[in-house]
């Protein structure tokens, strides 16, 4: 508000008011000068040092200059190192198969991936069930490309720290034992780490306000959930089965600290979604070539085997938008889809 007289500047200067008396020793002065110069020049190094995951801007910038780059991305459901290992491989493989430049653009959270897809900054994204539905609703014509063999019936695993004293159970009703406990979901927009687990909890009669502190936590990713529950920061949490199994396998989840409580019924989850305009940009038939390329990945090829292993699947299978009707319905129930 244009109230004259004193301004921030006034009192800033008042407070910041520098001592004007002390001249700086020459060495310090020279150091400051060099430091200043190098600070100013650091940003110029950005493209030189930009390794994978260095940050999105340079990667995206090329597109706006009209180069034909297929930009792929994924919701950040796991540790960045794993994503940074997997998706550059995918980019490489697709580039080889399709003969176009493919670039992986890392995302910091789920909604950002959806937004970037809507604004046309991403061409092909590995979405979860919920984020995929959100993306398709916001971008009409977006195509469901494929899902993994395990995605047609995907499961969540409820886990607990051994310190909590919680015991595994067989029936869904067992979820009531989580009442009054500190409980964490994964990302707010995760299908296997939030949406479907919340649905199953509600079915079993557990409201979100039944957890300790009156609300669940949101760890941000499946790996974080496992780490937080293992450490005891939360008594219990929920993760997707594939991450859980691979964490057990590579020792990231220590069975003396964290155990599985219950495996949920199956539902549809992850899938690749592509922009509607790929054929116009990359040539006729590009979308179907893309689909075929992904569906053709097999463990017999050493590189594709590596990719499939990191995805925790044997192969990719065709998928259709209609199979995600239940996800959409649950998403609307809990207010994540409008």
């Amino acid at each position: 508000m244009g109230t004259g007289g004193t301004t921030q500047a006034d009192d800033l200067a008042d407070i910041v008011g520098q001592s004007l008396r002390m001249p700086m020793p020459i060495r310090l002065r020279a150091t400051a000068m060099v430091a200043g110069l190098s600070l100013a020049l650091v940003p110029l190094l950005a493209p030189l040092t930009g390794g994978p995951g260095a940050g999105l801007p340079p990667a995206l910038a090329q597109q706006s200059q009209g180069l034909k780059v297929l930009r792929i991305s994924a919701i950040p459901d796991q540790k960045p190192e794993k994503l940074n290992r997997l998706y550059p491989l995918v980019a490489q493989e697709l580039s080889q198969q399709l003969g176009v430049t493919v670039k992986y653009v890392p995302m910091v959270d789920y909604p950002a991936a959806v937004s970037a897809f809507r604004t046309g900054d991403l061409d092909l994204v590995w979405f979860g069930g919920l984020t995929g539905v959100q993306a398709r609703l916001q971008k009409s014509g977006a195509k469901v490309v494929a899902q993994r063999d395990i995605d047609a019936s995907f499961n969540s695993i409820f886990i607990a720290s051994t310190r909590s004293g919680l015991q595994p159970f067989r029936q869904q009703k067992g979820l009531t034992s989580l009442k009054g406990r500190r409980f964490t979901f994964g990302s707010e927009s995760s299908t296997s780490g939030r949406l479907m687990p919340q649905y199953f909890l509600t079915q079993a009669g557990v409201k979100l306000s039944d957890f300790a502190d009156g609300a669940p936590g949101f760890s941000g990713s499946h790996d974080a959930t496992i780490a937080l529950v293992s450490s005891g920061a939360y008594d219990a949490g929920v993760v997707n089965e594939q991450v859980w199994l691979s964490s057990l396998k590579d020792g990231k989840a220590n069975p003396t600290k964290v155990i599985a409580l219950w495996k949920s019924p199956g539902y549809q989850d992850y899938h690749w979604i592509a922009q509607p305009n790929l054929d116009q940009r990359f040539g006729k038939g590009f979308s179907s070539r893309l689909t075929k390329a992904i569906l053709a990945w097999r463990p017999s090829d050493p590189k594709q085997k590596q990719i499939l292993e990191l995805f925790g699947a044997q192969k990719f299978v065709p998928a259709s938008a209609s199979s995600y009707g239940r996800i959409e319905q649950v998403g609307r129930q809990i207010g994540k889809i409008r």
Partner: peptide
């Protein structure tokens, strides 16, 4: 370190 430096360069920029 390289990734952090690259990130830092972008932030500074």
């Amino acid at each position: 370190i390289q990734a952090a430096l690259a990130g830092l360069a972008i932030t500074l920029g």
